[in-house]
């Protein structure tokens, strides 16, 4: 664990964050796939904006809870979505999808570690 913070009650917030991360990870994956399968650029944009909002939340708190790497990757993915939407084309969509896939995988790894510890 990175940047461990010593603060009473923080462990409870970390647990809640990880609980939410499972939901958020699924949501990002669903929006990413929907963006890929969309029938119009407008649909793709709407799905990516949903994913961006979730990444934004993760980026805003992960670092404060000691999950610096996850937070940095969430921020990088959020910025990648913003950049892609500013200059949208099907050619630059695929690298973004790959980046989001990596992020979803990273969330999965973190949740697996948590599950191993608690299980």
């Amino acid at each position: 664990m990175e940047g461990v913070l010593a603060m009473p009650g923080l462990e409870r917030v970390r647990e809640k964050f990880l609980g939410l991360l499972a939901e958020r990870r699924s949501a990002i994956a669903l929006h990413t796939l929907a963006a890929l399968d969309a029938h119009s650029p407008a649909e793709t944009e709407a799905e990516l904006l949903e994913a961006q909002n979730i990444l934004h939340k993760i980026a805003g708190t992960a670092g404060s809870l000691g999950f610096d790497t996850l937070g940095n990757e969430a921020r990088a993915s959020e910025e990648a979505i913003i950049a892609t939407l500013q200059n949208f084309s099907s050619a630059n969509l695929l690298p973004l999808i790959e980046q989001l896939d990596v992020f979803v995988g990273m969330c999965g790894d973190l949740l697996t570690v948590k599950s191993d510890r608690t299980g």
């Binding site: 603060m7 009473p8 009650g9 923080l10 409870r12 917030v13 809640k16 964050f17 939410l20 939340k57 805003g60 708190t61 404060s64 809870l65």
Partner: peptide, 8 residues
Amino acid sequence: IILELLTQ
């Protein structure tokens, strides 16, 4: 999560 963090 931010609101809980701020509380802490």
